[in-house]
Design a protein around this nucleic acid. Structure first.
Lengths: 145, 145
DNA sequence: GTTAATTGCGCAATGT
DNA sequence: TACATTGCGCAATTAA
């Protein structure tokens, strides 16, 4: 279990915040947007327990960690996408392989069918001819067309 | 092409910003964090073109749009994940199917092999016996083992 | 033109 | 402690 805080917050409590990257456009100051404009009464969050009102986010170390995590995230997502593509590729390959195999089965079945027919034919011939253990094989045996 | 602004900004220009959800923990004020502390000189972004310094983000309509988009995003991501799972499932199914087909091929091949052997046997027998239209068939003819 | 769907990205919590 | 994953929201873009 996890993400409860966020989900609760943004979805339920409506306490989302947003910031912008500036430069390319808007360029404004980060703004806290209480999606709950109605909350005129109580302060949603007790400003207590703020160890570093100033530092913390400004911390050099914090930024480093963030940056590294961002890289890790990007990496992870790339892998994820690559994996998905590979899986899709695998599906295509397996499909082809399948068709190949089915074709082979079809061919083998056909061959078998032919051979079996030939066998039946011979069996009939034998049934007619193999009678005379002493002197068989005569023109009359010929039942084939 | 797209996302250039963001990529440029955060990655290259280092003008990232961050905000928090508050409540469950930190609960601080949104803070702009110029990853580029060295930029003491020029104002990165001309504060011009701010139509609504106050409203905009507070806009009721804005929140509605955001909320709708958030839902859409969630939906889209769910679908994406589901699709990935389905694809993986498909791979498994195809693999099984493949094995099934290969087994069948093996079986058919075996059958064919047997029948062919029988045929050869018969052929030899015939070669030995069906000869005497006149009387050539002699033991000496037997080249078989 | 509006809305929904996608997509890249950063943050934070959590997993390893 | 570092890196990897994952859920989430934002904004830009694209597709309906």
């Amino acid at each position: 279990m996890s993400r409860l805080s966020q989900a609760k917050l943004n979805t339920a409590d409506h306490i989302s915040v947003s910031v912008i990257q500036s430069q390319a456009h808007t360029s404004q100051v980060p703004q806290l947007i209480p999606a709950n404009p109605s909350a005129g009464g109580g302060k949603a969050l007790p400003p207590s327990k703020m160890k570093k009102p100033s530092a913390d986010k400004d911390s050099d170390e914090y930024r480093q960690r963030r940056e590294r995590n961002n890289l890790a995230v990007k990496k992870s997502r790339m892998r994820s996408k690559q994996k998905a593509m590979d899986t899709q590729q695998r599906v295509n390959e397996l499909k082809e392989e399948n068709e190949r195999l089915e074709a082979k089965i079809k061919l083998l079945s056909k061959e078998l069918s032919v051979l079996k027919d030939l066998f039946l034919e011979h069996a009939h011939n034998l049934a007619d001819n193999v009678q005379p253990p002493t002197e068989n094989v005569s023109e009359s045996d010929n039942k084939l067309t």
